[in-house]
């Protein structure tokens, strides 16, 4: 079959991108290899590990289960867009650092994106709610405890 190419236009972290992609190109590969936004990681390519989670119009989704062409006209947010241009952490990034919420850091991008969206909607989450929200992101290093603590701390700091 000839390559089935499509022109797409989307924003990533607020910046506009135009590209021509093969229909089968996964959004995760498009972000990482075409846009060189390699902060989004790929762990399983079947939608279980959550490492590739990005925000699609503000909602966390698995970028390995979406085609790049499907992002046409949408706004994507990735880990690269979290900290301020000056490098200031978001409250969640800061809390992850403070609580040792990452070890190898490979699952971290997906966790940051998932829980960033979660904190937007849950100002005062319980630990159970945090664990539930986190359960779609596998981490093999931390045992989750410090991540949970980081999210709780971030929520508390965001409440001020």
């Amino acid at each position: 079959m000839d390559n089935d190419l499509h022109d797409i236009a989307l924003t990533v972290n607020g910046a506009a991108y135009n590209g021509r992609v093969e229909s089968r190109l996964l959004l995760s590969d498009f972000l990482r290899h075409d846009l060189k936004l390699a902060g989004t990681h790929v762990g399983c390519e079947h939608g279980v590990c959550g490492a590739c989670t990005v925000l699609l119009d503000g909602e966390p989704v698995r970028s390995c289960l979406m085609l790049a062409v499907q992002a046409n006209g949408h706004a994507i947010s990735t880990i690269e867009g979290l900290a301020s241009p000056a490098g200031d952490y978001t409250p969640l990034q800061q809390a992850m650092h403070d609580h040792h919420g990452l070890q190898c850091g490979y699952c971290t991008p997906g966790i940051l994106m998932t829980m960033t969206a979660f904190l937007d909607e849950h100002a005062s989450p319980s630990e159970d709610e945090v664990r539930e929200a986190l359960s779609g992101n596998l981490c093999r290093c931390t045992g989750y405890q410090n991540i949970v603590d980081a999210v709780m701390t971030a929520a508390s700091r965001m409440r001020g």
């Binding site: 499509h6 996964l26 062409v69």
Partner: peptide, 11 residues
Amino acid sequence: MKPAPFKYIAA
């Protein structure tokens, strides 16, 4: 684990 080629049409 990459999908095989296909033709994509957005309805």
